[in-house]
């Protein structure tokens, strides 16, 4: 199973990128073996979804120093760089990715993070959703060959 997990808070505009992409993906046609999950604020409780997958693409709001609407692709290690070391109620995606390496009881899937800078609008959401599907289907390196230049990939 390949999964796209959209995280964030739909009731906070600055953090709503993941849920907005989820809504678009939920309406799109996709291969049967790509599951789209509204990961919302579940944080560490998303571990099970990751461990049982072959490839996982997370979608989240990011601050990577770029302009609003920029879409970036990060590796799991890059995304975990600023993770808090200690668990608390705000332990989000970065903490999850950091914890994953320590607690996983099986082989880890291939993990990518599609990040969106700022509060996204229609075209950005579409770009991110298309990118997620491509990466989930083919992996990042393959998807990169035919991805729109709007993707400011760091990976």
């Amino acid at each position: 199973m390949r999964r796209i997990i959209c995280v964030g808070n739909r009731h906070s505009a600055a953090d709503a990128a993941g849920p907005l992409v989820y809504e678009r993906l939920a309406r799109m046609e996709r291969p049967l073996d790509i599951e789209v999950i509204d990961g919302a604020l579940a944080g560490l409780d998303l571990l099970r979804f990751v461990e049982q997958a072959e490839r996982v693409v997370f979608v989240d709001a990011v601050r990577a120093g770029g302009s609003r609407g920029r879409v970036v692709v990060l590796t799991a290690d890059e995304a975990a760089e600023n993770a808090p070391e200690i668990y608390d109620h705000s332990a989000g995606l970065a903490y999850l990715l950091r914890a994953l390496r320590c607690v996983s009881e099986g082989p880890l899937p291939e993990i990518w993070v599609v990040g969106i800078e700022g509060i996204p609008e229609g075209e950005t959401i579409k770009t991110a959703a298309d990118l997620c599907l491509s990466i989930a289907a083919e992996g990042y390196r393959a998807a990169r060959q035919h991805t729109a230049p709007a993707c400011g990939a760091r990976a």
């Binding site: 808070n9 600055a14 953090d15 601050r63 760089e81 705000s90 970065a94």
Partner: peptide
């Protein structure tokens, strides 16, 4: 404090640590 409903953070606009 996210559960106080009326409360959150100063200094950052995102509720969660940005990546």
């Amino acid at each position: 404090l996210v559960c106080t409903v009326h409360a959150l953070h100063r200094g950052r606009s995102l509720a969660r640590q940005p990546l």
